[in-house]
Design a protein around this nucleic acid. Structure first.
Lengths: 205, 205, 205, 205
DNA sequence: TATGAATGAGAATTCATTCAT
DNA sequence: GATGAATGAATTCTCATTCAT
C-alpha cells in the first residue's frame, strides 16, 4: 500500500467531511455524534465517509490534530518585546475573535476536555504545556520589571482562556441571559474584558 | 395514580442513584453515559434503576433540577446592601469553592450547555435569566454610585462564572499545564482572580 | 461483578444457543455464520444471544472448548493392556460412530483446522499433541513386540482420523458418489475400514 | 456481446488473479475471502478484478471448474490393464504428490465440500460420480479375479482420498502433532500409507 | 484496461427499556 | 422492591458491487 497522495479532489472531499464532522462533533460530543449525522451534513453516504477516514475516532482525531495549531496561534503571537499591556490586550482580542468566528472549534475542544480529554491528553501535556511554560516566563519577566501588577502568569492565562471561550462554549447560556438577538454581544464583551483585565473593578484615583 | 409519598427508604435509594448518575453523566455527558454504568456505580441492577426513575432522561432531569438551586445560591447571596468590592470578592470566593467541592455538578451543567442545553434551556431563560437581571441591577447601582469602576454587569458575571468554573470544567487541562499534583491550585487561583478582578493588570503606582 | 452461577434456566438457554450455533458454525464456518442465522435457529433475538455469550467469537470458543474433550475420548480409551488388533479395531469403530452421530462437531473442527485453526492452534499443540505422543508410544511398543506390523504410529493415527471423519466432513461428496439414500453407508464403511486397516489389499494366501 | 477471444495479455492477468484468489479462498473459505484480500494478493485494484471476473462467485467458480480436471487426473490414470497392487500403490502416490504440491487446491475443494458444496454439487454428482463408477468397476473386477482382497471399491477410494488429502487439508493439525519442521512428513506418510493399504496392520508371518 | 470514489445491503454490537418472576 | 431475561432500535463498520473517468 503506497500512501495515497492527496489529489485535489480528495482534499476537497476530506475538507467537506471535516466541516460536517466539526458541526456534529462540536454540537453533540464524540459519543453523541453519529456517522449518520455527519454523512447527512456532508451530503454523502456513511460508507463513503469511512472511505476517507477509517473510523469515527480517526475523523475526530483528524479534526483535533488539524485544529490544535490554529487554536494555539494567538498565544504564540504574544511578543516578549512588545508593551505588556498592549500585548495582553491584543491577546484577549485575538482570543475573543476566535471564539466569535470559530465557536465550533472551541466547543470541539471544550467537549473533549470536559469529558477528561481521553483523546488529546498527550497534546495538552505536551505542546500546550510547553507553550504555556514559555509564555508564562515572558509574563513573569514583565511582572519582575514592574510593567505588570504581580500576577500568577499561568492562572492569568487560564482566566483569559475561560472568559473568552465562554462566549463560544456557553453560547446558549449567554443567549438565554442576554436575549438571543443581542448583536453587540462581542463588542461589549471585548470592552468589558479589557477593562476588567487591565484595570479591575476597584475605581482608580 | 397517586403520587408516591417518598418513604425514607425510597429517598435513600434515590439519593444513591443520583449520586452514581452524577458521577457518570458529568464524566461522559448524557449520550455517553449508560444505564449500565450508572447501575454499576450505584451497585444495583439496571431495571431497578428504572423503577425509581422511569427513563434515563428522567434521571438526568432530576439531577439538573435538583442541583440548579445549589448552583444559583452564591449569586443569590450577593447582597445589595453590602460593600461592592467585598461582595464581589466574596462571590468569587463562593463560586471558586463550589468549583472546588462540586466539580461534578459543574461539569454536569457545562456538558449540558455546551451541547446546546436541550434539556435545560427553559431553566436558563427563566430562573437564571431572572436572577441575573435582578443582580445586574444591583451592580449597575454600585457603578452608578461610583463604588465600582464602570463595567457591564452581565458580562462581569459571565467573567466570574467562566474563570471560577474553569477549574472544575477544564480540570484535565489545568492539571496538564500545572502538573497533576499541584495542591495549591485553588489557593493560587483565588488570589489571582481576586487581584485580577479587583485591581487589574495595570500597575497602580 | 460476581461470576454468574449458572441457574438451570440459564444452563438450558445456553445449551439451546450452543446447539443452534453448532448447526450454523458447522455448516458455514466461523466467517460464514451469522448471528442472525444462529438467533433464528435458536428461536431468540440476536441481542439475547449476546446476553449469554459476549461475542460471536465467544460463542464459537465455548463450542470448541466444550467439544474438544468429547472429541478426544475415543483415543483416550485406547488401552495399552488390550490386544493391539482389537484395540485398534475398536478405536476405528468408535471414531466412525462419532462421525456418524456427531457430524456437526466433526465439521466444526474441520472447518477450523482447514482455515489454519486460528482459534484452536494452542489446543492442537497442547492437549492433542500430548495425547498423541502418549498413545503413539503405546503403539510403538505393540510394534516392537511384533504384535503389529511395523508402522509409524502417528501417521497411523492420521489415517484413522482421516478415513473416519471423512464420512462426516465430506458427507455431500460421499452422498453424491454413493447416492444420498444409501442407508448402509456406515456399515459398509466400517467393514471396509476394518478390513483395510487390519489386513490390507494384498490377498493373504 | 461476442465472447471476448482471450488475448495472451488477458490470459496472463486472469491467471494472476486466479492464483491470488486461490491463495485467499483456500485460506479463508468463500465467505471469509474478501475481494480486498484478493486484489491485494494480485497487486491490482478491486474494480479491475471485477473487470475480469464479474462477481466474486464467478471468480470462485472459475477456480473450481478449472481445477476439477487436475484433481481427477490421478484417478483417471488408474489403468485396468495394470497390476492391481501396483496401480493402487501408484494412485496413492500420485494423490499424495498432489496433496504435497497443490495443498491450496485441496483446501479449496475441502472448504467447499465441508460447507455443503453449494457451488459444485453438480460436478460431484456428475463428473466425479461417473468417473468413480467407472473405476469402481475396474477394482471390482480385480477383486473378482482374486488379485485384490475383497473390498468395497468406492469406500476404498474414499479411504485413499481421505488419507492423502489429510496432509494438505489438515496441515496445521499435522504440524501441531509432528512439529512444524518435520521435513520427512510426506516420505513417512507415503511409506505408512502404502504399507497400511497394501498389507494392513496384522503381522504377516 | 485500470482505478479512485461512491453506495446499498448486511453484520456485529450497544443500549434503553420491557417483561416475568 | 429487586433482578434475570429478553428485545427493538440504533450505531459502527464491512464488503461486493457500481460509477465515472
Amino acid at each position: 500500500m503506497t500512501e495515497a497522495r492527496p489529489t485535489p479532489r480528495r482534499a476537497a472531499t476530506e475538507a467537506r467531511i471535516l466541516d460536517a464532522a466539526l458541526d456534529v462533533f462540536s454540537a453533540h460530543g464524540f459519543r453523541g455524534a453519529t456517522l449518520d449525522g455527519i454523512a447527512d451534513a456532508a451530503g454523502m453516504s456513511k460508507p463513503n465517509l469511512l472511505y476517507y477516514f477509517t473510523t469515527k475516532e480517526d475523523m475526530h482525531g483528524a479534526l483535533l490534530g488539524g485544529l490544535m495549531g490554529t487554536w494555539l496561534e494567538p498565544l504564540e503571537a504574544l511578543n516578549a518585546a512588545g508593551d505588556p499591556i498592549e500585548e495582553l490586550r491584543a491577546y484577549i482580542r485575538r482570543k475573543l475573535e476566535m471564539a466569535r468566528h470559530y465557536p465550533r472549534e472551541s466547543r470541539l475542544f471544550a467537549n473533549e476536555i470536559i469529558q477528561g480529554a481521553p483523546r488529546i491528553e498527550a497534546m495538552l501535556s505536551g505542546r500546550l504545556h510547553d507553550l504555556v511554560a514559555e509564555k508564562a516566563q515572558v509574563i513573569r519577566c514583565w511582572v519582575a520589571d514592574h510593567r505588570l501588577a504581580p500576577v500568577d502568569p499561568v492562572h492569568l492565562l487560564f482566566a483569559i482562556w475561560a472568559t473568552t471561550q465562554h462566549y463560544a462554549d456557553f453560547d446558549v447560556q449567554v443567549s438565554a441571559v442576554l436575549g438571543a438577538d443581542d448583536a453587540t454581544r462581542f463588542d461589549t464583551a471585548q470592552a468589558t474584558l479589557e477593562a476588567l483585565f487591565l484595570d479591575g473593578l476597584r475605581p482608580r484615583e
